[in-house]
């Protein structure tokens, strides 16, 4: 499957899961701020991706949970260097470089973009 095909299918998935319009789902759109996703929607998105791409997505792989639960990885509301290293390892599909420029905890959800999902699916399909 080409990247364009993956993008198209991911967009369809998000339109179904979030009830948004086609044109809102740009590749740079963030799931929470731009598309209005709530926590429960993340599980819905995972279920739909599994179905639409015939893959299995283990819990926490696409959308890691409790990213800042480890107090040693956060200081003064910012993710520390170790924390960023941990993010890189947990989320190779995300644009951690962009986040690292302003690593405030509240910016973490900004990494959750349409492109992040596309990257994840592409890695998954290539690995499989």
């Amino acid at each position: 499957m080409s990247r364009d095909e993956i993008i198209e299918k991911v967009k369809e998935t998000l339109v179904d899961a979030l009830g948004v319009d086609d044109d809102e789902v740009t590749e740079a759109a963030t799931l929470v701020d731009d598309l209005g996703a709530e926590s429960i929607d993340f599980l819905d998105i995972v279920f739909r991706l599994e179905k639409n791409f015939s893959i299995k997505i283990p819990r926490g792989e696409l959308f890691p949970e409790n990213l800042t639960a480890d107090a040693s990885l956060v200081a003064d509301g910012q993710v520390t260097k170790d924390g960023i290293a941990a993010l890189r390892q947990k989320m190779p599909h995300a644009d951690v470089d962009a986040f690292a420029e302003d690593p405030r905890v509240e910016n973490i959800q900004g990494m959750f973009t349409v492109t992040m999902i596309v990257n994840f699916i592409e890695n998954k399909l290539n690995a499989g």
């Binding site: 599980l43 819905d44 995972v46 279920f47 599994e50 179905k51 819990r59």
Partner: peptide, 10 residues
């Protein structure tokens, strides 16, 4: 049932 995981199901 269309999908089942440890967190829930659809």
């Amino acid at each position: 049932l269309t999908n089942v995981g440890e967190e829930g199901g659809s």
